[in-house]
Design a binder for these strands. Sequence first.
DNA 1: GATGTAATGTAGACACTGTCAACATTCGAT
DNA 2: ATCGAATGTTGACAGTGTCTACATTACATC
Lengths: 205, 205
Amino acid sequence: MPNDSTTDGYHHGDLRNALLSAAEGLLVQHGTGGLSLREVARVAGVSHTAPYRHFRDKAALLQALARRGFERLHAAMTDAAANVPHGPEQQLVAAGIAYVQLAVNHAEITQLMFGGTLDPAADAAGDTPGRDAFAALQTIIESGIQAGVFRQRASRELALVAWTSMHGLAMLMTAGLLEVDTDNPAALDQLVGSVASNVIYGIAR
Amino acid sequence: MPNDSTTDGYHHGDLRNALLSAAEGLLVQHGTGGLSLREVARVAGVSHTAPYRHFRDKAALLQALARRGFERLHAAMTDAAANVPHGPEQQLVAAGIAYVQLAVNHAEITQLMFGGTLDPAADAAGDTPGRDAFAALQTIIESGIQAGVFRQRASRELALVAWTSMHGLAMLMTAGLLEVDTDNPAALDQLVGSVASNVIYGIAR
DNA sequence: GATGTAATGTAGACACTGTCAACATTCGAT
DNA sequence: ATCGAATGTTGACAGTGTCTACATTACATC
């Protein structure tokens, strides 16, 4: 009799997701390093070894958390691009804003995703949600190339510049090395817009 | 009688640096997270509380290690730019190559510097070696603006694009999310050169 | 040169952590 | 109804960061 997905005695019902949510909450409280598996279990209301029925490791829990983040990232970027059908340039800017915005709003998970703590080969083969996010960007670039808006080069090459610049911006901000008024969303839009515009039209001349 | 900076009995002589070196060595063996203060002390040949005479915290040790990394980064970039006096564009590319190369060769320390684990406000006021590296880049940009090679914009704005794109490239590589033949240095040069050239001349048209 | 004080290193303890092994409870197919 | 598999618990172990108390040494001052 699984009533409403909360606890109903000995078995939890949906512990795996409960653990992930608890972990995400604790992650924003005590930074990336200060997450304890036992505290996650405590918050979820189970014994300190219960997580091992759902995750092989502490690393596996973090990996699953990072995977969630990659999925969110992919969704946010494609949504942003889809809602701005004013041509590839605007789409690129919109995707960039979505990227940086999500990274800043979930700084700890972003650090998890790209912090190097996780084994990049840990995901199952052919099952890398991180590539989807890059692919979304590459799709925008390709449409821009075909529309004659962007240079006639390998789309991978052009997408790489867009990717690295937005990623670098996001990383510097989440690390706290770029003083920006994060409370004011317009300031972030302007910052991302500035970087994106320079990427599109170049530094030179 | 301080003979040759190695151990000479009860007192070590230069324990602080010995600890930093030991920590750096262990960092490349076990990743960024798997560094134990006790093991650092063990490698340095002292008791497990000796490090507390030189660092308030484990975090303080890591902070000092990161500071070393920032100083190296600044030196590598300015050296690279100084050795290539063929105009701001080439200097920018050279600095970028130096940046990414150092990051890849010292991936773990780079993750330490930018991983968000450290408190960005932990450094003493006015004493932020991280800004020096950015300033080095900004100097190149400024000379390029005055020479009429780069756009007539705020140097900070232009430097930001160069900074973020190189930083993003370095971060993706150190995190292992960009498959590149790291053994072949020419491949890295080409990759950085491609990104830099696209930053300079833009994606558009 | 002797001496006292600060700097430096050590020993032991504490709470906490990740993980393993053994055991308990419950779900679901037969 | 029954039995195996899935899920959760208890207890233990080694390892960790950090605190307190103590030992040893260096060095400025007389």
